[in-house]
Design a binder for these strands. Sequence first.
DNA 1: CCAACATGTCATAGC
DNA 2: CTGCTATGACATGTT
Length: 627
Amino acid sequence: MQIAKKYFTEGLIQLTILLSLIGVRVDIDSYLSGYYTPLAEINLGPSSAYTQTPFHSLRDTLDGFSVHPKCPELDHFFASRRLLEEVRTLGAPRFHTQLNAWLVQQGSGPSTSTDSDTGAGLESPEDEGRGEHLPGTAHEANPEAERGPRGAGACLFPEEQEEVKVKEEEEPVPLSHLAHSSSLEQEGLLEGVTPLPNPGVHHPFLSATDIDWSNLLSVSDIDDLDSLVPEHLPDLDSDISSAISQDVSLHDAMVTNAGAYLSGGSESGTGTRPPRTLLRLESTGSSFSDASPGLALGLAALPFASVSGNLIPQSTLGSCLDEAVFDQINQLGLDGLDTMDNQLLSCLGCIDPQVLEDLDSDSGLSLESSSASPVSPGSSEMSSSSSSCWDVECGATGYSSEADSVPAKGLVDRPAPWPPADLSESVWHDHSYSSPALLTKASLKEEPLSDEDEGSLLEERELSRDELRARALCIPFSAMQIVNMPVEEFMEVLDSHGFSSDQVTLLRDIRRRGKNKLAAQNCRKRKLDAITGLQEEVDRLRAQRDRLLRDKHLTAKTMGAVGQQIKQLTRDVLARLRDDAGQPLSPERFTLQCGANGRVAVQPIRRPAVATSAGRKTTKRKKEKKQ
DNA sequence: CCAACATGTCATAGC
DNA sequence: CTGCTATGACATGTT
């Protein structure tokens, strides 16, 4: 995203992209051809954070712009389309191919171009691209702009696709070819790659293009497209070449509807083009909305692809577009959901929904959850925290949900006491709550078992001592329930069920032991974590110590070498100096002293007056040996 | 059989 | 005072 932001903060590029988005033919392909890779990485590899970003934040901050400064509707529209593109890109793995092939088409188009340097286009796309096409509207500004794509629109065949892709990669696309590319296609392609351009930059040029805005946008055409979607489902084809031709023809349709240059000097354009392109336009939308959402890039430009003479105010534009966009989103989502739901249901049909719900929760014995549940003694919180544990038990045994799935709150609120005889099976089935792994395993494994298996498993499963005691005293609660219910609820249970003193004592013991058991687990876990952390710290400190020791040795070695060099230099200097007698200065009697100002002075070595001659000799010998 | 480990339980301190 | 948590110590079962 940083790269994308960097790119999009370049105002000219932003402007180019934005103009392309609103239907003005600008040189955006040159931009794309150069920055395609990073942009593609941005969108084709949606990070979880990116896709999971809340809609409001997506709308407001994805492009780095909070609100469209002048046109909130437009901003909203862009945000909506951005969201739609996010949805599309999730399922558009073949976007690269489409983009490449399309770019080649533009490059091989008949448009007259004076620029052949793609790099120049990248450097200053607005100079050539927008400079030519901005002054006029989409209908009249630049005949080449419409002639180019149309000429190249239907020229790509499946067998040519790969070749063209290579060609596109090898040869830089002429700038003007790219500049003349269809805004619709650019939009669709671009939005498949980029998280939408900067809406804010677009405004200064709105005055020059707002007419195109109004002309290009038509709600009725959007509706038509929607209505046409089902009619052309047979046209849906995952073939890339088909999708490409559709995308290119999309622009042709726009141009045709615009009524300008329909019969212009397009080399490849023919008189039979308009009907065919229209059909392709429709099929493009259908392909997007149904078969392969990612391939239907043209639908990204559907609001703009609808070309009519209707002038609609921008205030209404936003809402209309939003509806269209979100209809598409809904359509996508519903289609995907239908498929996914069918598959999921087929896989999970045999699983009890309750168990499915339980799978979302933790094992019910998670130390965190278990320890947290008492901290939140609210009834609602209790039901959320402890019910998961109980549900696990329910899922583990597969008992009837009437008895098993009753949460603690329900237990307490239920006026009628539970018959121990009936609850014996439903409550005393699995109380191995101390072992989360066992619980999870049991809950997952035992669900599809039959009653016979349940019985055998019940027999196999050992009840804890507290469970046995509670069963002996006919206490109609599981240890999990007793432990996890809030204290208020527990007190209410003790009061409302008319338990004997033994039962109450046992209930309290079970609760105390259960909580202490969980606390012990927590404590041990913390202890292990602490030990692990300390061990890691020990390792780290040990490594640091070794590193420091190595540095110390190296420093000492260096210091020794430097000292030797100094001594040698001192000897050399003193050997070149002469005393009054003309004799060389002895290093034993003189030394060199470096002053703070950089001066070097010869100083006699001061020896202790009390030093014995023997000591001097010993010192001298040592010095000599060292030297 | 023994050691190591895991787990439950008790006692206790502290909040 | 009560309930809860944390933790050391001990017992017991498992590997």
